[in-house]
């Protein structure tokens, strides 16, 4: 297995976006790309990352391999790469290590690191194809700010989607808060658009703690998609055009 990115920045951001939610995980490498699927330790959220082979500068995977890696260790290794350095990952069959090579574009500095692989029992979950009742596309910075703001007031947020707006509400010991975002088009700046596709109205409650973990992916993507159906996990997707995506799934809370 050998994969090379032109710039380390994307991989750094991907690892930063998931490492605090899932500690150790397996990267599944096939000839179509690298992916990971992992639950957080409390089994409430699920992360699915796909990095397509087309998104790499060069990519070769002769035999499918599952590489168990501590993401915190991977983040440590990637700290040694400059944002504009190229990154090459290498793993040989049956080897218990993965190699990282960073090269500056002027080629005057090359650094190499070897990370020990771990034995990780992964159980992949089947994510069913879902026709969502409401899909909201919005700037990822808006979602990050909304979740951060509401976290000051409560632990949970109720997201309600109507035809032309989406409402985020919370309440806690010191009071309540809500943020309403209205659909807005923007032909010249599509990344600032708020688009709401509503087939059925939806209202779901989620733990803000997890949404705040998810929005760590905001530096990867200007836009985010919230896909919701009543009584179904929320899907928060950060698309990376040409490269792949990070999708986070979160189980809703129920009234008791």
């Amino acid at each position: 297995f050998e994969a090379k990115w032109d710039h380390a920045s994307t991989l750094k951001k991907v690892i930063d976006a998931v490492k605090d939610l899932i500690g150790d995980t397996s990267w599944d490498c096939t000839n179509t790309g690298m992916s990971l699927q992992s639950m957080d330790s409390s089994h409430v959220a699920l992360v699915h990352v796909l990095l397509k082979s087309e998104g790499f500068e060069s990519y070769r995977c002769d035999r499918n391999v599952s590489m168990g890696i501590s993401l915190n260790s991977m983040a440590k290794v990637l700290k040694c790469a400059g944002n504009d350095d190229s990154v090459t990952l290498r793993h040989e069959s049956e080897s218990s290590v993965v190699n990282f090579a960073f090269e500056s574009h002027k080629e005057e500095r090359v650094s190499e690191f070897e990370l020990k692989l771990m034995n990780i029992d992964t159980e992949h979950l089947g994510i069913p194809e879902t026709e969502y009742d409401s899909i909201i596309k919005m700037p990822s910075a808006d979602l990050r700010r909304t979740c951060a703001d509401l976290s000051q007031f409560g632990d949970s947020v109720t997201i309600s989607c109507a035809k032309s707006d989406v409402r985020f509400e919370t309440s806690g010991d010191i009071g309540t808060g809500n943020v309403r975002l209205s659909a807005r088009g923007s032909s010249d700046k599509p990344e600032t658009e708020i688009a709401i596709e509503m087939i059925n109205p939806v209202s779901l409650t989620f733990a803000l703690k997890y949404l705040n973990f998810f929005t760590k992916a905001a530096p990867l993507s200007d836009t985010v998609k919230l896909c919701m159906s009543n009584n179904h996990p929320l899907c928060v997707e950060f698309p990376m055009p040409e490269v792949g995506y990070i999708r986070y799934y979160l189980a809703p809370k129920i009234d008791e």
Binding site: V44, E123, T205, P233, Y249, A251, K253, I254, D255, E256
Partner: peptide, 14 residues
Amino acid sequence: SSGQRPITAFFSKA
């Protein structure tokens, strides 16, 4: 109060 369900209540083991 509201209860948190696990994600495994919705997605089955593949």
